[in-house]
Computed example of a mutant assay.
Amino acid sequence: MPPDGPVTMAVHSLPLPELDPPKRSRSRWTLWLVLAVCAAPVIASYFSFYVLDLRGRAYSDLITPTRDMPAELELTTLQGAPVPAKTLQGQWLLTYVPDRTCDSGCERMLFMQRQLREMLGKDRDKLDKLVLVPDDVALTPAQIDALTGHGAPATVLRAKREVLEGWLMAAPGHRMGEHLFLVDPMGRWMLRSPATPEPTALKKDLERLMRANAGWDRPGR
């Protein structure tokens, strides 16, 4: 019989519950899939900037860093109904902002905006036409009809001039109405055409961007 001695106690940690390995793996893959879907527009934009090396070959001005759609951008239809700015996201936006009056130069730019989209051919459905009309600019009934009455009408919205001028800026020595602006699917301004652009050269920039986003973009908003 063993001699008497002090009583010793051993304390063991309780086993912790573990996720079943297959469930843990599925959860991890689901998380990565959600992150990939959310980040797709960001990845596409950086692919366009760096992998395609647009900086050295672009006809237009690349805006770096990109400029986010301002939180104070309040949009309305031409009839005055409010439109949430976030509804513009999810699509490339070829954007035009008329000057104090929509004169013959303005009408030429609007025609060019429409033609550029059509010139993209099978990629044209990846690009929407957006016209942001400052609150102090009046459009004639004929101009409104030209913008909204065609097979692929533009989205025409009003906004405060000071907010637009703080976001989409003209090149030094030029006016906003001389440019076309490209806004990416995250609502960031990332490209500005030269003043009174040459359509064929600008089309090449748009084609490069549409090709870069072919894998994820969806036609139409």
Rank of each mutant, 00 (worst) to 15 (best):
Y59D: 02
L33G: 12
V7T: 12
M112G: 00
R124F: 01
P6Y: 08
L110Q: 12
A171V: 02
A171E: 13
W189I: 02
E118R: 14
M190W: 11
G80D: 09
K86T: 15
D136T: 09
L116N: 01
R192D: 10
D103W: 03
L110Y: 05
E72K: 11
V163E: 03
Q79E: 13
V163F: 03
L116V: 04
A81W: 09
D128H: 06
C106E: 04
P70E: 08
K160N: 09
G56Y: 04
A171H: 09
G149N: 14
L62P: 00
Q89E: 15
V7N: 05
P141D: 07
D205L: 01
M9W: 09
L16P: 13
L139D: 02
E178W: 10
A152F: 10
K86P: 00
I63N: 06
M109P: 01
E74G: 07
W167P: 02
D61N: 07
R208D: 10
P41I: 07
P2C: 00
E198L: 13
W189D: 04
P65I: 11
R28E: 15
L132Q: 00
P134C: 06
Y96H: 07
P21M: 09
F111K: 12
L182W: 02
A170T: 04
R188P: 01
D136H: 13
S27R: 15
E72R: 13
D20Y: 13
L130A: 04
P65N: 11
S60G: 11
C102I: 05
V42A: 13
P17G: 06
R208C: 03
A171G: 09
A40P: 01
D136A: 12
F47K: 05
D205S: 09
I144C: 08
G80T: 06
H174Q: 14
D20Q: 09
G166T: 07
A171F: 01
M186Y: 02
F47P: 00
E74R: 11
L73H: 01
D128P: 00
L52V: 03
Q79F: 01
A85S: 14
T140D: 12
E162F: 15
F111T: 12
Q89T: 15
G215L: 11
M109F: 00
W216P: 01
G105H: 15
E165I: 06
T76R: 13
